[in-house]
């Protein structure tokens, strides 16, 4: 069997202002065309929220940004690393470039996807040790700091099966941050959680945004989008129908489909923005508020 690959230190990327550029991306699953010529850019430090009805292609789009899904056509560039999509471009170099992209773009999944056979800390230090070749003691220091940041210092030796959904997702956020990414992609990070657990995850994300992280967030959390997003993209049927600052998008959606969608989201019974605006303090108090990066739990 092949020896585990050595960590390759990613080559320095040009420091331009544009963190993610998607150009003319198409993706089909069999006959279904899921992404139809999508183009978008995300600038450094920007928080972009993607909304849209189920099946509109949001997950597929965000997964195309770190190549968990391979676009059929188009170009994707992340932190200056450009990848041309399509079969004719496959090759060794390209695989390496994709790995370099993944080192810079963390991802947080709807279903957390924590490694069940590792503790919370184990999950967080796995990437630094296996992929970045960090020593265990260094990785542990980093991991403990990140767990503290998401308010989970006391859970460091707990296995995922003994964590609540919200705690799992916060560990997952810490795990992606442990790679010290330049961009974090979130695919409906709160959708698998009970409503009362949304806020602790959103809080961690707000903190991250405040620190200037570039974020692409697929979510239906209207309040989060209003407060944190710089731009909202509205997708339907594999195209981006509307793109606007949240204030504008939520108060005056231009596209009729966006209007119809917002009516649904804002009146959905489980929608967190409703409940949270009613009892923000109660929820806030139940949740460990995130200390600024270096701090631990009180």
């Amino acid at each position: 069997m092949a020896a585990p690959e050595q960590e390759r230190v990613a080559s320095a990327a040009p420091r331009d202002d544009c963190q993610i550029r998607v150009e003319g991306v198409r993706k089909r699953f069999g006959k279904l065309e899921v992404l139809k010529d999508i183009s978008l850019t995300v600038r450094r430090g920007e928080v972009v929220v993607i909304m849209g009805p189920s099946g509109s292609g949001k997950t597929t789009l965000i997964r195309c940004m770190n190549f968990l899904e391979e676009p059929d056509e188009g170009r994707v560039s992340v932190c200056g690393l450009e990848v041309q999509c399509g079969n004719e471009h496959r090759g060794r170099n390209r695989a390496r470039r994709i790995r370099d992209i993944r080192l810079r773009a963390g991802m947080v999944f709807q279903q957390f996807n924590l490694f069940p056979h590792m503790t919370a800390l184990g999950n967080v230090i796995e990437g630094p040790m296996t992929v970045r070749g960090m020593s265990r003691s260094q990785a542990v220091t980093l991991g403990e700091r990140l767990l503290a940041r998401v308010g989970l210092s006391d859970k460091r030796d707990e296995y995922p099966s003994r964590l609540s959904g919200g705690q799992k997702q916060r560990v997952a956020i810490a795990r992606s941050l442990a790679m010290e990414p330049e961009v974090v992609l979130f695919d409906e990070p709160t959708s698998a959680l009970d409503p009362e657990l949304h806020e602790e995850v959103l809080q961690a994300m707000r903190e991250l945004a405040r620190e200037g992280m570039t974020m692409v967030v697929v979510t239906h959390e209207v309040r989060f989008a209003r407060e944190v997003a710089d731009r909202v993209l509205f997708m339907d049927g594999g195209v981006i129908l509307e793109e606007a600052p949240p204030r504008e998008f939520f108060s005056r959606p231009k596209h009729p489909r966006a209007r119809a969608f917002l009516r649904l989201v804002e009146h959905a019974p489980a929608e967190a923005s409703e409940g949270l605006t009613v009892v923000p303090s109660a929820v806030g108090a139940a949740v460990p508020l995130l200390p600024p990066s270096a701090g631990g739990l009180a």
């Binding site: 690959e5 080192l103 991802m107 990437g127 296996t130 992929v131 992606s176």
Partner: peptide
């Protein structure tokens, strides 16, 4: 996917 997303081969 989670393993690949943190850059594992």
């Amino acid at each position: 996917e989670a393993a690949n997303a943190i850059g594992m081969s």
